[in-house]
């Protein structure tokens, strides 16, 4: 039963208030993109065992999407940030680096 700080409400939110939305920072492929790129965008997920950048919706709260960085193996949360941030904030990246100094994911 997960919980995150909703970066909009700035309060702790329980998983029962939230809806998961899969991998974050996907680049949308529209008309004109190659078959391979469109397939990658639509289906090929990183699905890492380790640090995962993902989207969650505060559905029974403010109704806003936000980003979460979570380890899929330990469930550790490295932070949450706005859905309109196209890159994770430095603070979070630093926290990850500290946890995984060799840059490799958890496994």
């Amino acid at each position: 039963m997960l919980k995150f700080i909703c970066p909009i409400c700035e309060i702790e939110t329980d998983e029962t208030e939230l809806t998961p939305g899969g991998e974050a920072h996907l680049k949308r492929m529209g008309p004109g993109s190659s078959d391979q790129n469109f397939y990658t965008y639509l289906f090929e997920r990183k699905n890492p065992r380790g640090i995962h950048f993902e989207r969650w919706l505060h559905s029974y709260g403010c109704g806003k999407w936000f980003h979460v960085v979570r380890c899929t193996k330990t469930m550790e949360v490295f932070g949450t940030y706005s859905a309109q941030d196209t890159k994770p904030p430095k603070k979070i990246l630093d926290a990850i680096k500290k946890k995984l100094p060799n840059g490799k994911n958890v496994k």
Partner: peptide, 14 residues
């Protein structure tokens, strides 16, 4: 099934 990526063999109680 749960809706989020997970490798723990534990799910959410809900």
């Amino acid at each position: 099934a749960d809706g989020y990526n997970n490798y723990t063999q534990r799910g959410s109680f809900q």
